[in-house]
Design a protein around this nucleic acid. Structure first.
Lengths: 223, 223
DNA sequence: GTCTATATCGCGATAGAC
DNA sequence: GTCTATCGCGATATAGAC
């Protein structure tokens, strides 16, 4: 009984807890100010150590960034795509009706509006990562490739379900939908009152023969 | 006759030529590597002076950035919107048929594909400028506001011209179109072969009752 | 294995000589 | 109008204390 067994399958060591604390700090600071604007010293200070101490847990700022990205993507993607979705994601099996999943996607947009910092981080990063030399370049490349593929089958299925197949190429719609969501985020971040991302995405989906629940059905998204 | 009169209305002084050379250098380097990755020393070296010399012409890096942006925007915007378009732009008067102007817009997308560096610069900057503290924040805010407004009347006019008015809210279409173009650029920059920006934009426009010339009409965009 | 202290580098920016 | 010299700052790398 010298070591009291915890309910978790694997009690975290001190190093692992420090590591987690660092990722938390980095997430918050990256989300608030972007990647380049945050220093390792800032992150380390918030996690309660010096920047050199931090560098014992991660080889560099880039590697830390990747951890932050992977963690967030795993969480979000799981909400819409139950299966394998992103480079480091674990397997999974469950399924849901296509229309329902599209509704979840639109809902997710609303939920993201509550964390503008993270939205901004992704907007900045996906633009930065455009540079082939950027540490997250291939990560984002694969991210979009997978998202396009998943969205394509999702849209095709939803069109079939809605009896509106043939109203447009699902692959084109997927690419456009992704682009639309990204672009709307930029405009929304610049001036939040200037548009409703959810409404504009729904409007877009309708033009592809999909009517993702006009929102009147579940107005209580608030909390 | 000691000073031979040039044909221009206003022969540039040495300082003005240096200034122009600096803006050229900054444009090229920003376009290639983004804002943060380029130093004033890099820009100055390329323009043939030291970074301190450069700072004699511009109060700081931010101010230089704004000059680069303004110049590029003035050039591009003029192609589609003959009138006043952006914060620092001069007045102008000429007009053209809405459908023709929409076609110019789509054409501009193709032209931009020839300078991926500049496309990347705008993608990075509009994301960076999302931060209220960013030097270009209010510039981009107004940029989008004006572009949305101009695109709204352009789309409305084009719908009227095409006899397809009422096929969708022009204001929503304008916001979506802007977002779509921005988002497509990100995906295109990450993986140029993965999509055709022009084709996807045309497809989008068709869904709003606009059919901007399928491109077969004027294939000679090359040179 | 975990962390601190120290050193070096390049950056944007300023002051003052020429 | 342009230079040299210098400042303070942040990123990064290494040595070694605990």
């Amino acid at each position: 009984m010298s070591d009291h067994a915890g309910p978790a399958p694997h009690r975290p060591s001190k190093g692992e807890r420090t590591r987690a604390r660092i990722i938390d700090s980095a997430s918050e600071l990256f989300a608030r100010s972007g990647f380049h604007a945050v220093s390792l010293r800032d992150i380390a200070a918030r996690a309660g150590l010096t920047h050199a101490g931090l560098l014992h847990h991660f080889p560099g700022k880039d590697a830390l960034l990747m951890e932050v990205l992977r963690r967030r993507d795993r969480l979000d993607a799981h909400a819409v795509f139950p299966g394998v979705v992103l480079p480091g994601a674990p397997e999974a099996a469950p399924e849901a009706a296509p229309g329902q999943r599209l509704r979840l996607l639109v809902r997710l947009i609303g939920r993201n509006s509550e964390t503008p910092g993270l939205v901004a981080l992704y907007a900045k990063l996906s633009a930065e990562a455009t540079d082939p030399e950027h540490p997250a370049h291939s990560y984002f490349k694969e991210r979009y490739r997978i998202l396009r593929a998943e969205l394509t089958v999702l849209i095709a299925a939803a069109q079939a379900e809605a009896g509106s197949a043939g109203q447009g190429d699902p692959a084109a719609a997927a690419t456009q939908l992704l682009a639309l969501m990204d672009g709307l985020q930029t405009q929304w971040l610049l001036e939040p009152e200037s548009l409703s991302m959810e409404e504009l995405v729904r409007d877009f989906l309708r033009r592809f023969g999909l009517d993702p629940d006009s929102g009147a059905g579940a107005p209580g998204v608030s909390s």
